[in-house]
Amino acid sequence: MTGHLDVYGVYVPVLLVAMLAAYGIKSLLATVLQRTGFYRWVWHPPLFNLALYIIVLGALFNLLPRM
């Protein structure tokens, strides 16, 4: 992995792409968890959302070199 992606002549950091993808996945997961009533059992939802984002970002960043 080089650390940069070439998008029509503009170099974009891979971390930025991973962060945007993680945010989208986290938003989908948070919506599903909200609809199922999971957040009734969570003490601090914003803190849980931050932890969920970091977990998803870490998973994506570990999977990127394999793709």
Score class of each variant (00 low, 15 high):
Leu64Met: 09
Leu28Met: 12
Leu5Met: 06
Gln34Arg: 07
Tyr53Arg: 02
Trp43Thr: 04
Tyr23His: 14
Val42Met: 10
Thr31Cys: 04
Ala18Asn: 11
Lys26Ala: 15
Asn62Leu: 15
Leu29Asn: 01
Val12Ser: 12
Phe61His: 02
Arg35Pro: 02
Phe38Gln: 01
Ala22Cys: 07
Leu5Tyr: 05
Ala21Arg: 06
Met67Val: 12
Ala22Asn: 04
Asn62Lys: 11
Met67Thr: 09
Trp41Phe: 14
His4Ser: 12
Leu29His: 02
Gly24Trp: 07
Val12Pro: 12
Leu20Gly: 06
Val10Asp: 08
Val10Gln: 09
His4Tyr: 13
Leu64Cys: 03
Tyr8Met: 10
Leu15Gly: 03
Ile55Thr: 13
Gly3Asp: 06
Arg66Val: 12
Val32Ile: 10
Arg40Asp: 06
Phe38Thr: 06
Phe48Met: 04
Tyr39Thr: 06
Tyr53Asp: 00
Arg40Asn: 13
Gly3Gln: 08
Met19Pro: 00
Arg66Trp: 11
Leu47Met: 07
Pro13Asp: 09
Leu52Cys: 03
Tyr39Phe: 14
Leu57Ser: 00
Arg40Lys: 15
Leu64Glu: 02
Trp43Gln: 10
Trp41Thr: 05
Leu52Tyr: 03
Ala30Thr: 12
His4Gly: 01
Leu15Asp: 12
Leu28Ser: 07
Leu5Arg: 05
Leu64Gly: 00
Thr2Gly: 06
Leu16Gln: 15
Val12Asn: 10
Gly3Phe: 05
Arg35Gly: 14
Val10Trp: 12
Trp43Met: 10
Pro45Ile: 00
Gln34Asn: 05
Gly24Lys: 03
Asp6Ser: 13
Asp6His: 06
Val42Phe: 13
Gly37Arg: 06
Leu33Lys: 02
His44Arg: 07
Val12Tyr: 14
Leu63Arg: 05
Ala22Tyr: 01
Leu60Asp: 01
Ser27His: 14
Leu63Tyr: 10
Leu64Trp: 10
Thr2Lys: 11
Val17Gln: 03
Leu63Thr: 04
Leu50Met: 12
Met19Ile: 00
Tyr11Asn: 09
Val12Thr: 11
Gly37Tyr: 04
Leu64Thr: 00
Val17Met: 08
Trp41Leu: 10
Val42Thr: 03
Ala30Asn: 08
Val12Trp: 14
Ala30Gly: 06
Phe48Leu: 03
Leu50Glu: 10
Ala30Met: 06
Leu29Cys: 05
Val7Thr: 11
Ala21Ser: 11
Leu63Asp: 02
Thr2Ala: 13
Leu20Ser: 07
Gln34Trp: 09
Arg35Met: 14
Tyr11Glu: 07
Leu50Gln: 07
Val42Pro: 07
His44Tyr: 14
Asn62Val: 15
Leu16Phe: 09
Leu50Val: 13
Val42Tyr: 09
Tyr8Phe: 12
Val17Ile: 12
Leu57Glu: 00
Val32Cys: 03
Arg40Ser: 10
Val7Ile: 14
Phe61Pro: 00
His44Val: 08
Leu28Arg: 14
Val42Asp: 10
Val42Ala: 09
Arg40His: 07
His4Ala: 09
Met67His: 08
